[in-house]
Design a protein around this nucleic acid. Structure first.
Length: 843
RNA sequence: GCGAGAGUGGCGGAAUUGGCAGACGCGCUAGACUUAGGAUCUAGUACCAAUUUGGUGUGGGGGUUCGAGUCCCCCCUCUCGCACCA
């Protein structure tokens, strides 16, 4: 019976069994607390009380077929931890979550599988909601909302109509980016640098369509100035500044020789006006057809045709050699009546400035290159300091200098010349000062099904007629052939398209396009406060209490699109009296990108890491804490699960520490503060460490320094376990309580469990508790400072805190090593920084 | 090309105002737990020599300073953004 082999195995079995019992049972515990929070509605925000309000927002989720990935966890987990910390500190937190539910992927998926975008989106939302709940964030599920329902998108239409009324929504036929794969138009902002479609990677081509634009350019200046007032990452603000691209310059009219035609150029360098040796029009410029001479017609036509096939990126590539064609016509330089040839070239864009450029090859790199290639004259009109007028230009000189060969303006510094020449041009009526922006109006028309219908009808009698507000929403029909045929899917739905004119009652057709989904996301943060509100776009009273958003966290890739559009819409809503603030997001933080093997995670690359694998093995707290511990939040980094066991061990140690001290608070009530001199050495050191950790933790969490906050907690745990046997129950309870409140934001389930284990009756997040550091404990009586001889550390000495130089010097020179390095030498200099360093310089 | 950020042990990364570089974690090494260990605990772990100790070290080169990972100049590499913007 007592076979040693059996016995042996039984022992092992027993030991393993015991360990399993000890191990932190994260599955039950995490589920237990999630259920508790949900049943007690712990995260339901009292929105009527905005006294201590803190609106914490993450960019809402796009419910694609893919489940939550590491990036979502990395975005939402730490942000929630920050908000939880703030909650423990007494803030009234509002942390909502919703779904950015319209969009192309759902439609592409439908095209591929035949599953209706509405059905797949709703299914995805179901799945994602479950996953989100398992993360254990403080989302107020009462506020949950999605953009693809009429209750929401009705207000996109309403917003559009308000802009229309103010003349901010207009239609124009313009060269647009056409993605042959998506069969749709893309905004310039949505075309990638290599000329491909942001969503599908297909090379974008040009197509001319009549489209709706929102006049964001009217707000260009304010969007620029507003950046100074918001707490956003500098790099993001710089990106928006560049994107808006304000440049102050001069517009100058050039007459076309022996005709009545004229055109305008924009320049930031009017001081080089005498250096103009030719002018260039964009191939699309309206004048090109009118002025081209008969003998040049064929060549010009051929060139225009060639340019039409090029994407903007190809046209503007620096690598590409300059191309262009002479029109045969001449323009007259208004400053000196000189006749200069008119060329067309693809490097001049019709979408920027006036679509016409005065070419100064001597002082502009592109013009220089062009002139060299086509043998056009190069004239020097700005003299570089330290060079002679007769020196030949080997490259364009684009800096400041002294004007030469410029008539009566010769001799002026170029800065002054800019003003003088502009004054002259204004006086003569040839043009004037002009501010130009790189920013273009926001193209919102999409020839697509899965979006907000544009509330406009076209009537043969009345023309373009806005749908009256009381007839909103213009509902998106369910039955539709969403397969792309080059036109909008809605255009083929007779029931939708055919309608009556709201003005004359005659037959009319609806606009068959839908809106860019960035319209949806440009105001969603205003609706969360009352997501079922039906009296208006949003509950303005609540929205004004709670906005601007106090903390907005999301990817840096939205720097120039979503984040600019939302600012624009917010300012517009302010102007029509709906909101009372200037900016939507007071503070912005970008989470870094988590890559895998150096590449962005994507389905196509097959390098997607599934967070579920880790949450199932370690639990959601461990996974969340590991993501925070990996490195600086804003940097992101390459994914590796190498260190996750470290965080798991940390959690195991915490759990056994708290289980071993179960109901400690029933035995003892710790004091608010202890007199440090009355504690034993172990207690002193734990007491100090506890308060140092509190201080450090606060600093770090406030600034999204999660990695160092976790490290501070680990240090504290090490200090506690090292000294555990020497601690009185009072000190033990004191430090565990503080450890617990710091732990809870980072690992909320475990935090609650420990809180209960200690003997607390009410959930921590139900009744928030925080402890401030006892500053007196941080004051120490002795400090260790370095003693340097000639800048090299030769000793470390303990000195009384705040000890003066003479005392320190005395102690320092007791060190043999210091003596050794100073022996026989004279002291030239002494540097003493209190409590930091003593450095003696000898010779 | 322009703009922003980064470069620190075998690895992820720490380091208020310039003031003891390498916190915390992973990994590794050794030991303990009467036999097993993908468990736990303890100790060690930048590099080079050696016992104490000395020297070298934050991408490379120069500079400021008593003192530089940190500030200044030049260069290299990587990441992101922009790209003929007139």
């Amino acid at each position: 019976m007592l076979n040693p082999f059996y016995f042996n195995n039984f022992q092992i079995y027993f030991k393993i069994k015991m360990q399993e019992k000890m191990k932190y049972p994260f599955k039950e515990i995490e589920e237990k607390w999630r259920k508790y929070w949900e049943e007690k509605e712990v995260y339901k925000t009292n929105l009527t009380d905005a006294k201590n309000k803190l609106y914490t927002l993450v960019m809402f989720i796009y419910p694609s077929g893919a489940k939550l990935h590491i990036g979502h966890w990395y975005n939402y987990g730490p942000t929630d931890s920050w908000a939880r910390y703030k909650k423990l500190r007494g803030y009234n937190i509002f942390e909502p979550m919703g779904y950015d539910a319209f969009g192309l992927p759902a439609e592409n998926y439908a095209i591929k599988t035949g599953i209706h975008p509405y059905d797949s989106t709703m299914k995805n939302i179901e799945d994602i909601r479950k996953q989100l709940k398992r993360m254990g964030c403080m989302y107020d599920w009462n506020a949950e909302m999605m953009t693809c329902v009429p209750e929401y998108y009705k207000w996109n239409q309403w917003l559009f109509l308000q802009m229309y009324k103010k003349g901010l929504a207009y239609r124009k036929n313009a060269p647009v980016n056409w993605c042959p794969s998506c069969q749709t138009v893309l905004a310039n902002e949505q075309v990638q640098t290599d000329g491909t479609c942001e969503r599908c990677g297909t090379t974008v081509v040009h197509k001319h369509l009549t489209q709706w634009f929102l006049k964001i350019t009217d707000y260009a200046d304010e969007l620029l100035e507003g950046l100074d007032k918001i707490d956003w990452p500098e790099r993001t603000k710089a990106m928006q500044r560049n994107w808006i691209g304000k440049s102050v310059g001069t517009e100058i009219n050039f007459k076309v020789d022996s005709t009545d035609y004229s055109f305008t150029v924009f320049t930031t360098r009017p001081d080089t006006l005498f250096g103009v040796t030719y002018v260039v029009l964009a191939p699309e410029h309206e004048l090109v057809q009118k002025i081209t001479k008969e003998e040049q017609k064929e060549e010009v036509e051929k060139y225009i045709e060639k340019v039409r096939t090029l994407s903007e990126i190809e046209r503007t590539s620096t690598v590409k050699e300059k191309t262009g064609v002479f029109t045969g016509a001449y323009a007259v330089n208004p400053i000196n009546n000189e006749k200069v040839p008119i060329w067309i070239a693809d490097y001049v864009l019709s979408t920027y400035g006036t679509g016409a450029v005065m070419a100064v090859p001597g002082h502009d790199e592109r013009d220089f290159e062009f002139a060299k290639k086509f043998n056009l004259p190069i004239r020097k009109v700005i003299l570089q300091e330290g060079t002679a007028p007769e020196d030949e230009l080997t490259e364009a000189f684009t800096g400041k200098g002294t004007m030469i060969n410029s008539g009566k303006f010769s001799g002026l510094p170029s800065d002054e010349g800019k003003e003088k020449i502009t004054d002259f041009i204004e006086q003569k009526g040839f043009g004037g000062r002009k501010v130009n922006y790189r920013l273009r109006d926001w193209l919102i028309s999409r020839q697509r099904y899965w979006g907000t219908p544009i509330p406009i009808v076209y009537c043969d009698n009345c023309g373009e007629v806005p749908v009256p507000e009381d007839q909103l929403p213009v509902e998106l029909p369910y039955d539709v052939d969403f397969k792309p045929h080059g036109s909008s899917p809605l255009a083929r739905n007779e029931n939708f398209v055919n309608t009556t004119c709201p003005k004359c009652g005659g037959p009319a057709k609806r606009d068959a396009d839908t809106m860019d989904t960035f319209v949806d996301s440009s105001w969603y943060y205003l609706r969360y406060m009352n997501s079922r509100y039906s009296e208006g776009m949003f509950d303005a009273e609540l929205a004004n209490k709670w906005t601007p958003v106090d903390m907005y966290v999301g990817g840096a890739e939205h720097a120039t699109m979503h984040l600019l559009y939302a600012r624009f819409v917010h300012k517009f809503l302010r102007d029509i009296g709906l909101v009372n603030s200037d900016e939507p997001f007071a503070k912005l933080v970008h989470q870094g990108t988590i890559t895998n093997q150096g590449a962005k995670m994507s389905k196509s690359k097959g390098n997607v890491v599934n967070p579920d694998d880790f949450t199932e093995q370690y639990g959601s707290d461990v996974f969340r804490m590991y993501l925070m511990f990996m490195g600086p939040y804003e940097l992101g980094g390459d994914w590796s699960d190498k260190g996750i066991v470290g965080v798991d061990r940390f959690v195991q140690r915490i759990y056994s520490l708290f289980t071993n001290n179960r109901n400690l608070l029933k035995k003892v009530t710790p004091k608010e503060k202890y007199e440090i001199e009355k504690l034993n050495e172990a207690e002193k050191s734990v007491y100090r460490k506890t308060n140092a950790a509190l201080k450090k933790y606060q600093n770090e969490i406030e600034n999204f320094g999660f990695n160092t906050a976790v490290a501070a907690l680990m240090e504290l745990l090490n200090e506690i376990t090292k000294n555990l046997s020497e601690l009185s129950d009072g000190i033990k309870a004191y430090t565990l309580l503080r450890f617990n409140v710091m732990l809870a934001p980072l690992a909320p389930h475990l935090g609650e469990e420990c809180w209960q284990l200690l003997g607390n009756e009410v959930s921590l997040f139900e009744k928030p508790v925080w402890f401030d550091a006892d500053e007196s404990a941080l004051r120490v009586d002795t400090v260790t400072i370095a003693v340097q001889v000639n800048g090299k550390v030769r000793a470390s000495i303990n000195i009384p805190v705040d000890a003066g130089k003479e005392t320190v010097k005395e102690i320092a020179f007791q060190s043999k090593n210091v003596q050794k390095f100073t022996e026989g030498k004279t002291i030239v200099k002494e540097i003493f920084v209190k409590n930091r360093i003593y450095n003696v310089v000898v010779k």
